[in-house]
Every structure is written in C-alpha cells, then in structure tokens.
C-alpha cells in the first residue's frame, strides 16, 4: 500500500534518513524500532508530510504522495504529546477533522459517539483536555485520529507518556483497535518489548536505514547484523572469522559452532539460550563467573571467557559464588551467524 524508496533527509550536516526503503501492507500493524537518532521520527514526519525528503520517492497505492500537503493526505497521525487542542472540549477535538472534511452535523455526532465508544470514553464529551488523565488524553488523541477512518494511522511513541502499569494493557487495546478498524498502523517506538509484542512486522532502523525487517519472532530469532542482535534482546555478540568451516573467536578463546556460512563475521548468542553445565556434563566453553544479579524470576550472570569477552547468561537457580569457574553449553541452533 505505502511504498518508500531511497528516502534521504539531512538536518544541516546530520543525515536523519540515508536511503531508506520500506513497504507497508494494507491492514498490518507495523512497528518502526530504533534508538534516538535512528531516523524513525523523521520517517514518520515525512510520511505525514511535515518534512519533505531531500531525495527519494513515496507512493500510496501507486500515487505519488510527496507533492500532497499534510492536510490533503489520507493519513492521520497520533502525536507523542497527543497535541489535543486545549481550547476545545473532547467532542470538539474529535469533531475538528470531521468539520474540515465537511461531514454534516448529525453524521458528525454519531461518528463522534462511535469513536468515543471505541476507545471507551463515553460521557467525557464536554471535558477539556486539561481535565483528563494521561490515559484519557491518549484515548482522545486516538479517537480524534480514528474518527477520520484513515487507511493508514501513524503513531509516534503512543505509549511513551503513559505509566508503566498502563502501558501493557493500552498496547493490547491498541492492537485490538487496529484489528477492529482494519487500518494499517505504523507505530514508532524505542521500546523493543512493545514492538515485539504488538506488531505483525517490525523494521529495526539504524542510522537512517532499515537494518532488518520481518515478523517479530523471525527478526528476534535470526538477527542479521550485530546492531540488530544487540538492540533486540541485548544478545551476546562474539567477533571472529571463519577458517576451514569453523568459527574462530579470539574473544571467546575457543572455536564456536559448526556449519556456519562462510561469510560469517560474528555470532550472536542469546543470554537465555546459554546454560551452566552440571559436573558430569562436558561444557562447550568455560569461564569465570564475574558477577550475578537477582532479577526476580531468574539471575543475570556475567561470565568472562578465556579470551576476555563477557557473556550475559540467564540462570534459573541460585548461582555459584563469584570467582568460580563455570562450564557453559548451548544448542547449536542457538548460534546465529551475523554478516554485518
């Protein structure tokens, strides 16, 4: 439905988008994931029409979007600050877009009521934004966008301003709304949990480009680059090189794995896939337990390998004393080859 090719945008000398390609399908929940400066917010602003790219193309259903001003784009956006009009009550805020679209008064009333119903805010029509809680403001902002029945809704960090306790539930409600309305959602977030939990597909952005794109499980299980592996779930990355079909890692102090592609330049190993070996089991690797931290469900262990690299390991039982030598093991399928 939406297709971006070779988008470039600079702010002074700083490139925010550096030849970004992206295709969004109709009706999908898509998450743009990246750290600050990755270009995710700039991309959203380009899609909404608030920023013009320096180069590249942007089409919606094959139609060129770039010459279309923001007020004429069939795309709506929900702002991180919600941007509710402080001089209008809830109903007038939601009516604003309908009035601009020339929707008749009685039609408007029923659509506002339906939108408030959708987000569960019936009865708050006459409240001012200043009289609403953070969660209520977020819902009004959502209703104000959804009442326009957009085919594509952009959400800029929709949950960033909410309390941690409210975030999980709101996220699930957001996905339910997306399914119900059938609109495509593009959500920008820096929170990988949020992106993995809600989206049909995610794109990890790095320095103004898409580093990897795909369904959450796939991107999480098979990160393609060091950046994606570290960014998603903070995987352990061990540098090295392939020689005679074996991955040699000086950092680890031993060879790792078999059957890795010849282009492998590093491997990723998730902390939860590594286990400590028992006394009667041959370890894949040995190391010294440097530090341990109790996290509630489990312990996080920091283990220094012979070559000096440190591994994060998630361990389900009380760990041995710091300074102890430990044996480590993992399944061969847990070793993910990285190519960049």
């Amino acid at each position: 439905m939406l297709k971006a090719t070779g988008l470039e945008k600079r702010f002074g000398a700083v490139p925010a988008l550096a030849g970004l390609d992206l295709a969004i399908n109709a009706g999908e929940f898509f998450a743009l994931l990246g750290g600050s400066g990755s270009g995710k917010s700039t991309l959203l602003r380009v899609l909404a029409g608030f920023e013009a790219p320096d180069a590249g193309a942007l089409t919606l259903d094959g139609q060129d979007l770039l010459p279309v001003p923001p007020w004429a784009r069939p795309i709506n956006m929900m702002f991180q600050s919600y941007a509710l009009f402080p001089h209008m009550n809830v109903a007038d805020n939601i009516a604003y877009g309908l009035k601009r679209a020339g929707v008749a008064a009685e039609d408007r009333r029923s659509r506002i009521a339906a939108a408030l119903d959708l987000v569960g805010l019936q009865g708050l029509e006459t409240r001012r934004p200043q009289q609403l809680s953070g969660g209520q403001k977020q819902r009004v902002a959502l209703a104000r966008s959804l009442v326009m029945r957009p085919r594509l809704l952009l959400l800029d960090e929709p949950m960033a301003a909410l309390d941690a306790g409210l975030r999980e539930r709101t996220g699930l409600e957001l996905r339910a709304l997306q399914r119900k309305t059938g609109a495509a959602f593009i959500m920008v977030t820096h929170d990988q949990q949020e992106a993995l939990a809600l989206a049909d597909r995610i794109a990890v952005l790095e320095a103004g480009r898409v580093a990897q794109i795909g369904p959450p499980q796939e991107v999480y299980a098979r990160p393609a680059t060091r950046f994606v592996a570290r960014f998603l779930g903070a995987a352990n990355v061990l540098e090295g090189r392939m020689r005679d079909g074996v991955f040699e890692s000086a950092e680890a102090g031993t060879d790792i794995g078999t059957d890795l592609p010849a282009a492998t330049i590093a491997v990723a190993l998730r902390a939860e896939h590594i286990r400590l070996t028992s006394a009667d089991e041959a370890p894949v690797m040995t190391g010294i337990l440097e530090d341990a931290a109790f996290r509630g469900d489990d312990w996080l262990l920091i283990i220094r390998l012979r070559g000096g690299a440190r591994l994060r390991v998630v361990h389900g039982a009380p760990p041995p004393a710091p300074g102890s030598a430990v044996g480590l093991a993992w399944g061969t399928a847990s070793v993910v080859p990285l190519f960049a």
Binding site: W71, I75, N76, F79, F85, Y96, M148
Partner: peptide, 27 residues
C-alpha cells in the same frame, strides 16, 4: 504555542488559513 498543535490541525485536514483561525488565533 506547541508546534505539534499546528501539525495536528494540518494532519486533520486544516488548510493554513483555517489552521490560523481555528488554532493559532484562539490560543
């Protein structure tokens, strides 16, 4: 004046003149 308010108005279909009279001026 929060620039996001002006962007939100534009996003909801307000042309520049309408945006001025419905958001900038009253605020």
């Amino acid at each position: 004046l929060d620039p996001a308010l002006l962007e939100a108005a534009a996003d909801l279909g307000a042309r520049p003149a309408r945006l001025f009279f419905s958001v900038t001026l009253p605020l």
